[in-house]
């Protein structure tokens, strides 16, 4: 199920914990399967599945009074001791710091566009935002990221 990987990454971006995200995704797949009769009427199955995932994640957060755990999961994205990996790891840390300062919906806009390559329209539908709000959110996040990249280039620091 290739869609499950996409769903997993989205759940992981919200929950920041791989095991929890995997559990939530398994529940989402059950829900999607139970509602499969509706599929022919659904225009964008991707957005529909992502919306179910989002609801499931926030239900989990509510039930478990979730607090963001740690960066350890994100750091597992890069392994190895090469300069390249260390460099990428640094990027990851500051990027994560920037994203953490953003409202949750803006973090999700960033993930859905930059990681999942979703259209503005689909993102707006998933998050219940207008097209303009999605574009502005992404533009502001990118501006913050660019500023940080310039700092890193000019001074070699990420903070």
């Amino acid at each position: 199920m290739p869609a499950s990987e996409k769903i997993y990454r989205y759940a992981f971006s919200i929950l920041k914990d791989s095991e929890t995200a995997a559990d939530v995704v398994q529940e989402c797949l059950m829900k999607i399967w139970d509602k499969r009769d509706k599929l022919p009427e659904i225009v964008s199955p991707d957005s529909w599945a992502m919306r179910i995932t989002r609801n499931q994640c926030y239900d989990w957060v509510k039930m478990n009074r979730y607090t963001l755990i740690s960066d350890k999961e994100l750091n597992t994205l890069d392994s190895g001791n090469t300069d390249d990996a260390i460099h990428a790891k640094d990027h990851l840390r500051w990027l994560d710091e920037i994203l953490k300062t953003l409202p949750e919906k803006h973090q999700e806009v960033f993930h859905l566009r930059e990681v999942e390559d979703m259209t503005y329209q689909d993102i707006a539908e998933i998050l219940g935002l207008s097209l303009g709000e999605v574009k502005i959110s992404l533009h502001r996040t990118r501006a913050k990221i660019r500023l940080m990249l310039q700092k890193i280039e000019d001074y070699g620091i990420a903070n």
């Binding site: 199920m1 095991e19 398994q26 399967w33 990027h91 990249l149």
Partner: peptide
């Protein structure tokens, strides 16, 4: 690209994040 430029690293990271695999294989519910 082998560039160590921070902007290159940023895009490289986005690419890596987009192929992140789940730690388990999900059971097909049906």
């Amino acid at each position: 690209n082998n560039s160590t430029d921070s902007e290159a690293g940023y895009f490289k990271h986005l690419k890596k994040a987009s192929v992140l695999k789940p730690p388990v294989e999900f059971k097909h519910p049906g």
